[in-house]
Design a protein around this nucleic acid. Structure first.
Lengths: 193, 193
DNA sequence: GTCTATAGGCAGATAGAC
DNA sequence: GTCTATCTGCCTATAGAC
């Protein structure tokens, strides 16, 4: 296993453990064990715990950006939004079992504060921007587009929290059904691009 | 300060610290200091940390039950729901600053697991039941009543998470405006009691 | 670059004087 | 009932052999 690969597997192990067990509740020793790297070696790749955490948030940010880049290739804003909903749907079981990685990190970060809080928020910030862009492209006013974006993200986070709390996917399914109906009902007119 | 009063002030201090800093990030020493009780004395009132946590969740459950008991005295289900919305509105600043105590506890509990997860969920469970009861009293089917209850709680939790993450109350205000409009638009017909 | 051993600090919990 | 002193264990981080 090459040096860079080890670094990558540490980040992936941390990412997974943060998602499953929370960021505060995960120790460097847990991460090292999951990645099968001796404890002390972790500090060769990351000077501090904070640096590892930062690398995980960077990794997550990059992966949501990549997903959005795929959606951006679609023809209409409605198609792009439907792709967003579809990808939500694909992760129902994961979200029911462990919650939303971004939402969980935001909540933990809001409690502890510090630089991590800013990094965690950036996933949400970019999501809101992207969603808003789609609604503006459908001809909505800036104000309405922002409101819709907030409603979608907020509904998503809330439904995931309920599903995770009760270990019951129906809360997410309800939200997705509402979303699909809503997008289907929206007037298609005034679309640009 | 009498013995029972000391116990009470420990619970209140823990309640507040759990809300502000999270339950995992709060040590017994923090709680003892906030309540101005020497560290060792805490263990006279609570055998373990878990027992203290349990007492805090009991205390919170009792306080939301008391609030609902007041709303139940109101004449119509619509009035009761509006009282629920009003109490949400009254706490906008608190929720923006520190998030929802129940939501935060649920999320942390979902990560660590154990008995705390069940206790945390009971606040949500009772909220869903109460909300559902109001919608049934307005004449909605059981299915619709449950769906509406889930949507309200989920929208609430999601909007609070966004407001807390961005330290911006507008996300909660948007949700409340939507809620008020929705309740205003709902047909009043078929109400019983 | 890799790994073992361990330092140093803080957490939960207990012993025992008062 | 109250409080100080302290035990034990886990965590982050480092020293230093290989």
């Amino acid at each position: 296993m090459a040096g860079t690969e080890k670094r990558g597997s540490l980040i992936r192990a941390a990412d997974s453990l943060f998602h499953r067990n929370g960021f505060e509740h995960t120790s460097i020793a847990d991460i090292a064990a999951a990645a099968r790297v001796p404890l002390g070696n972790v500090y060769y790749y990351f000077k501090t715990r904070g640096e590892l955490v930062r690398s995980v948030t960077d990794h997550r940010l990059a992966s949501v950006r990549a997903r959005r880049a795929e959606w951006d290739a679609l023809a209409s804003p409605r198609d792009r939004l439907l792709a967003y909903v579809k990808s939500f749907e694909n992760r129902i079981d994961e979200f029911t079992a462990h919650g939303c990685p971004a939402g969980g990190l935001c909540l933990e970060a809001n409690k502890v504060g510090g630089p991590i809080a800013r990094d965690a928020a950036s996933v949400f910030r970019e999501s809101l921007q992207w969603l808003g862009t789609q609604f503006r492209a459908m001809g909505l006013s800036d104000r309405q587009a922002r409101a819709n974006a907030a409603q979608i993200l907020s509904g998503r986070q809330g439904s995931v929290l309920l599903a995770n709390t009760f270990k019951d996917p129906k809360f997410i399914r309800l939200e997705i059904a509402r979303l699909k109906k809503w997008l289907g009902d929206m007037p298609a007119g005034n679309e640009r691009k």
